[in-house]
């Protein structure tokens, strides 16, 4: 119990601690850290991995034996994927069509709110105006408005302006529903850019538009990349908004609708759910990997406040 003092206030550990001891401790923590990281990674991956293994198993085996017994209960098939990818019927096309629909919805559904939110976040951070803080607080509090309650009023406006049931209606809806979170996230990064940088530009006579394009945008690339991912995922995985605002006809419907339909009118089909989940997850993972390089050290955003 001699170390109790250190445990209570480890940050006050005496500076006289020997270099040797410090090094030993560091090694230890880093080994512990490695183990902890592996444990987290494994724990976070196993459920998905189980689903992944199951997606290659025949339906009967999925419902009678555990996926970890795949070697004892051998049975490997690509049928689930073949069925998910190529199945089409009189009431539905194959998955490729829905994939395209998803892209047509997701690209503007991500781009539009990002652009508007960047501009608004900049204004909330760096253009002083009356009532700015209150408006900003209201904007981020709007995140809590349940989407389901906002659908009907917006739908009424869309039918009055004659764009209900078109892709643009879905885009506008996603833009509106995405704004509170994207503004909030981007504002955080933009407001942490050191004030001197912007003041200097202003002194040189730069307008807000110029500051926005020359300073803000380049400096917030990592933030844009991460917020982009979240907005992209939200739109990509959305079923409700697309369904209500596109009118839900199978010709404009996204991938999520098709996957939801495949499990049958009333029943559940594990084997199709498993394969479908991996088809839907593929593109988000590609996007994540390709944006990885933007999350790098050395860029100013997210730095300590001056």
């Amino acid at each position: 119990m001699t170390t109790s003092a250190t445990i209570e206030s480890p940050d006050l550990a005496p500076a006289t601690i020997s270099v040797k001891a410090s090094k030993a401790k560091k090694k230890l923590t880093s080994r512990a850290a490695t183990i902890a990281a592996i444990v987290i990674a494994v724990f976070w991956t196993i459920p998905t991995f189980g689903l992944f293994v199951s997606s290659f198993r025949p339906a009967e085996l999925i419902t009678t034996t555990g996926w970890w017994t795949i070697f004892q209960n051998w049975g490997l098939t690509f049928d689930n994927y073949a069925e998910v990818l190529t199945k089409s019927g009189a009431s539905s096309a194959n998955l490729g069509v829905y994939f395209v629909n998803s892209l047509i919805i997701t690209i503007p559904g991500t781009l539009f709110p990002m652009v508007l939110a960047l501009m608004a976040a900049y204004a909330f951070a760096w253009i002083p105006f009356k009532g700015r803080d209150i408006i900003f607080i209201v904007v981020f509090a709007l995140q809590v408005v349940p989407l389901q309650l906002a659908l009907v009023p917006l739908l009424q406006i869309f039918s009055a302006s004659g764009i209900a049931g078109t892709f643009p209606a879905v885009w506008i809806a996603h833009t509106i529903f995405g704004l509170p979170l994207t503004i909030f996230l981007l504002h955080n990064f933009i407001s942490e850019i050191p004030g001197e940088v912007i003041e200097a530009a202003k002194v040189d006579g730069a307008s807000h538009t110029q500051v926005f394009f020359r300073i803000i945008l380049p400096l917030t690339v990592p933030a844009i990349a991460s917020v982009f991912i979240f907005q992209f995922l939200w739109v990509w995985n959305d079923l409700l908004v697309a369904l209500v605002f596109s009118g839900g006809t199978s010709d404009v419907a996204p991938l999520t609708l098709r996957l939801a339909q495949m499990t049958g009118t009333l029943g559940s089909s594990w084997q199709l759910l498993t394969a479908g989940a991996f088809v839907a997850i593929a593109l988000p993972l590609v996007v994540f990997f390709s944006l990885q390089r933007f999350f790098v050290r050395g860029l100013l955003a997210g730095s300590t406040k001056g």
Partner: peptide
């Protein structure tokens, strides 16, 4: 158009005029 959330959606679409 078939969708499993039809039951809640039809009410919203009727109210929204679509």
């Amino acid at each position: 158009t078939g969708n499993k959330d039809f039951e809640s959606q039809i009410l919203q679409q009727a109210q929204g005029g679509t």
